[in-house]
Amino acid sequence: MTRILILFAHPALEKSRVHRRLVRVAQEMPGVTFNDLYEAYPTFDIDVRREQALLAEHDLIVLQHPLYWYSTPALLKQWQDLVLEHGWAYGSQGHALRGKRLLIILSAGGRAEAYQPGAFNRFTIREFLAPIEQTAYLCGMAYLPPLIFHGAHRMTLDDIGQAAGHYRHVLEALRDDALDPAALGAWQTLNDALNIMPMIGKSTQAVTQ
């Protein structure tokens, strides 16, 4: 049994269709702690000790957020800056996160084929997430391939329902240790590893294959 902590960062959840649905799933799931950062710290005044205590109590840390300008929303960056202290999260004395796992679950407006060398966004999402991957490495955490919901702007209600199903499936499998993290490491994204196609349109299939 893996204890899961979801660090959720969305500055305008009221405007998001996809995450509203995912959040409902996460909040109802046993064994998952859902930490809504923008709700907890609307003035960006992060309670560092509380956040560190939460991290210590969990094995798998999930960063869930929309991709804004190829990165995290501002508060999640603030959270990294303040919570991952030297001497606690990293450095010769900082071992608090060692051995834990880190997973990013994000939504992106663009379709999967737009995030390729030579395409519209020129880089893969995995490449855009390199700073967080390196952060996990520095803190001694195992970095899992990210789970990505592409084309969030064009999802139909059915698409969103399907995405929520995948989301539930991934979290439950990780919680119940039904997935071998070591085997996942070889994949670019969790979508590839699990053959998940939570994206709309015919182009999805081609990319994940």
């Binding site: 500055p11 305008a12 959840l13 009221e14 923008y38 709700e39 907890a40 609307p42 003035t43 508060l75």
Partner: peptide, 9 residues
């Protein structure tokens, strides 16, 4: 029922 951050903004 407003989000905290929305109300703050």
């Amino acid at each position: 029922g407003f989000r905290a951050y929305q109300a703050q903004r």
